Every structure is written in C-alpha cells, then in structure tokens.
Computed example of a mutant assay.
Amino acid sequence: MGFELTGFDLGAFVRRTLDEDLGAGLPGGGRDVTSESVIPGDARFSGVMDTRDAVVVAGLPIAAAFFRALDPGMTIDILVGEGEAASPGTSLMRLRGNARAMLTAERSALNTVQHLSGIATLTRAYVDAMGGADCVLLDTRKTIPGLRHLEKYATRMGGAHNHRMGLWDAAMIKDNHVLVAGGVAEAVARARRAGVARIICEVDQIDQIEPALEAGAHHILLDNMAPDELAAAVQIIAGRAATEASGGVNLSTIAGIAASGVDYVSVGRLTQSAPAADIGLDFTPLTD
C-alpha cells in the first residue's frame, strides 16, 4: 500500500529514523548487534500487530515502509484502514518475512503507529465531545519539530481539519504583532498592503473585532473567551469573517464553546499532549 503526503518524503523519513536507531555514522554503529548475534540471517518470522486500546488508527502504511526498507520481499497485510476505529484486541497488520528485518524495524514502526494513532484517537474524542455542533475542529502548529506533516495527518484521520501548516500559508496576527504595529487595525492593514491572501487576526477583547474587520481580516481568532462572550462576538462579526475559538478548550468545555456559534475551535493538545496508543507486535518463528 502506497503512502503519499504532500510535503513529506516517506523514504527519507524511514532512512533517517532507521539510521538513528542503528547508529549510522557512529563508531561501531550501523547495525543491530542483538539481532545479528542472536538471530540466524535466514530465519523467518510471522508477526501480528494488534491494539490493546480502543484506538483510531493512523500510520500503518508508514510502519509497513519500515519493514519493507529492510526486507523488500516481506509479505504485509494491513487489516484496518487509516482513520478507522479499532477495539482492544483487533489485529491491525500481519507480516511474514526475514526475522532480523522485523526485529530491527519493530521499534521504529511501533513508535510511529503508537504516536500517530494516539493523536488520531484523542482528536476523535474531541470531535465526539463537540456534540454534533455545526463547528469544525482545528489543530495547531504545536507539533514535534520534524513531525508536523505526520502529526497533522493524524489529526485529519481523527476528524479534525488542519489550521496553518506553517508560517507561510496564512498570516496570523497575534498580540506581539499588534504590539509592534501599534494596534489591531494597523497590523491587519500592513498584512493587506503586503498582499497576504489569508489574514487571521487574534483578538482577546470584543472592542478589537470591528477594527480588525474594517482593516480587512478574513478570519477572527477569539482568544480565551467564555461561551457567552463568544456568542456575542459571533453576532458582531455576523458572517463578515470566519470565527475561531481558542484557549481554555478541553474535553469538558468544548461542547459549550462549539455551541456558541463559532465556525472553528482550535486545540493545541491534539498534537501536544496525546498519549501513545498501546499497540504491540508479536512474532512467531516460521519453519517453512
């Protein structure tokens, strides 16, 4: 099964990750000393990856790429689709191939699936907690350096939409930009004069909304406002820009925030604080 993600080089990611684990380029590195010393080179294993938690699955094609990098002829069956829910005890992947390759790739493959499935699972919990409000969950840029494309992929598998991918695809005017520019209106106006196509402006006071709109903001981020204040802000904006609630959002508060009428709710902890899913991999020696 192929895996393509805009802006992400799967082959390079697999090579870097395996090289890190194998100690490539370090004195004595570049090898799995345990597997080489204990497992015969022609030994073969079958393996089953399963989940001990209830999870939303993300990252199985990436895990398969780790195994195939070390044994291109390995037989791999992915049993659960990306973004699908799996109950405890569900088999996610079956493998059959070179034993050393499986053992060497095991930790890199599991780390990736556990981390991404943890993000997807937490994201789905937030989507469900919104209670069916006509509102979209967004992630943020609070990602582990080097893993942004994968982590934001995982939030999509959980049912969220991506906010900015980086600093390049929209202007997000926050309090420090406003401080330097001298006010919300001037900060937004500068972005407009620079020809920025999409301008998000953060406000933490109701009286900042109108100046931001008049200066040409396309998206108003309402920071750390209670649901009643958010509802008032939505009435003031009245469809002239997209509205987003941010700050103070957790599983117990998101329903009330989403019900305020905002278009979006953004949650940094989707990528910042998701626990790894409990997913394991068990092997059986083959005699054929």
Rank of each mutant, 00 (worst) to 15 (best):
V57D: 00
A231C: 05
R94C: 06
G23Q: 03
T155I: 06
T17Q: 09
C135R: 02
I206G: 13
A255E: 08
I209E: 11
F8Y: 11
F13Q: 05
Y126R: 00
T6R: 15
S246I: 03
G30A: 05
L116V: 14
K174M: 10
G248P: 07
T90K: 12
M49S: 02
L79Y: 02
L103K: 11
A276Q: 15
P285C: 11
I279V: 12
G182P: 00
R240H: 08
G89D: 11
S91E: 11
Q235E: 12
I236T: 15
V203D: 05
M225P: 00
L222T: 03
R44K: 12
F66K: 00
S273W: 15
R100E: 01
G81I: 06
D282C: 15
L270S: 01
G247A: 06
R156W: 08
I78T: 10
G29V: 04
A12V: 04
S108F: 08
A187Y: 02
T284A: 14
A125N: 14
N176E: 04
D32K: 12
M172R: 11
D278A: 07
M49C: 00
G97Q: 10
T6C: 11
A258M: 01
G159V: 04
D207K: 15
A105S: 06
A231M: 06
G30N: 05
A232F: 11
V178S: 07
T6A: 14
D42F: 13
I254P: 10
A85H: 09
D207T: 14
L270Q: 01
Y264F: 15
L286W: 10
G182M: 07
P88M: 00
I144W: 08
T104A: 08
G41H: 10
A133R: 06
L167D: 01
F13Y: 13
L230V: 00
A258Y: 02
A255N: 09
H219E: 01
T104R: 09
H177L: 01
S252F: 13
V38H: 11
G23K: 08
E151S: 08
G41I: 03
K174P: 06
N224K: 05
V14N: 02
T284K: 15
L10C: 10
S91G: 12
D223G: 10
S87Q: 14
P27M: 13
M130H: 03
Q114A: 12
L230A: 02
G132C: 02
D278R: 09
A238V: 01
G159N: 06
L18H: 09
A170H: 11
T123E: 00
L10E: 11
I237M: 13
I76F: 11
A160G: 03
P227M: 02
G2A: 15
N176S: 07
M102R: 10
V127S: 04
G166I: 03
F8R: 04
D288L: 12
P88A: 04
E244K: 02
A197G: 12
L222G: 03
A54W: 02
R198C: 11
S37K: 14
S117M: 09
R107Q: 08
L167E: 00
V188L: 06
P72D: 09
T51I: 06
G166L: 09
A255W: 04
N250D: 13
T104L: 05
A43G: 00
G146M: 01
S246D: 10
P145T: 00
A241D: 01
F66Y: 13
